[in-house]
Amino acid sequence: MLLIHCPYCGEDRPELEFRHAGEAHVVRPDPISEISDEEFEAYFFIRDNPKGLTYERWRHMHGCARFFNAVRDTVSDKFVTTYKAGNPKVEIERGEDGIARVKGDGQ
């Protein structure tokens, strides 16, 4: 079971309290009613499926009930960081030790 850090509660809590909520930073087009079929396809159907770092949304369903963003490595299942919804996409860099960190956090 994963331990997930809720950026709103500020605590590591067990995965049981959370619910995965799909890819993060998928922006709903505005105005959505005027986009082309291709744009709708790209917005609604096309998702990344990376081996490695993935940006995804989680919801602290049985806690504060907030949606937030996370960066997780799909190979190791390790969370690099979690941050509040609406915050800009966090940049990640891999150190020489191969460990992914939030850019600027250093070691």
């Binding site: 619910r19 909520a21 709903r28 949304r57 919801r59 369903m61 009930a65 907030r66 949606f67 609406g86």
Partner: peptide, 11 residues
């Protein structure tokens, strides 16, 4: 409720 919260919180 989850669907509504999702739109309310994030969109």
């Amino acid at each position: 409720l989850h669907h509504m919260e999702d739109y309310l919180q994030t969109e």
